[in-house]
């Protein structure tokens, strides 16, 4: 409930408030969004599994975003930024797919 409400509020705020993202942060924003999406879908899955814990969700959300960002940052510093970015996106994408398929099973199995 809080999550859906928060999403709606965030989208509305994003539509009306358009701040200038600092250039330093710009390459990491898409990664952050994807990581957060993964965390959100993981939370949804655990919600369907009845093992949802708000504490776990908060920690996993933050750690997901931070890990993804730091990984890309590290890659940028090592000169393999774009490759590592691709790797992170791929891994998160796989996770999102598996989460979604798990959720689908719950929904269609009743």
């Amino acid at each position: 409930m809080a999550a859906v409400l928060g999403l709606i509020i965030g989208v509305i705020v994003g539509i009306f408030v358009k701040p200038d993202i600092p250039i330093v942060l710009q390459p990491y924003l898409p990664i952050m969004v994807v990581a957060a999406l993964d965390a959100l879908l993981g939370a949804a899955r655990s919600y369907f599994e009845r093992s949802f814990s708000d504490r776990v969700f908060i920690i996993s959300f933050i750690s997901n975003v931070l890990t993804a960002t730091l990984l890309v940052l590290l890659g940028n510093q090592l000169g393999v930024g774009s490759q590592l970015q691709t790797a992170v996106i791929v891994v998160l994408g796989i996770r999102i797919f598996s989460n979604v398929s798990a959720i689908r099973r719950f929904i269609f199995k009743g």
Binding site: V4, L5, G6, V13, P19, L29, P30, A36
Partner: peptide, 24 residues
Amino acid sequence: SSLLIAVLCASLGWGYVIQLNNST
């Protein structure tokens, strides 16, 4: 914790829309 979840999800949505409108 509910509030925190809401804030995090809001930041996700916000970041998504910002990235969507990012035309630089």
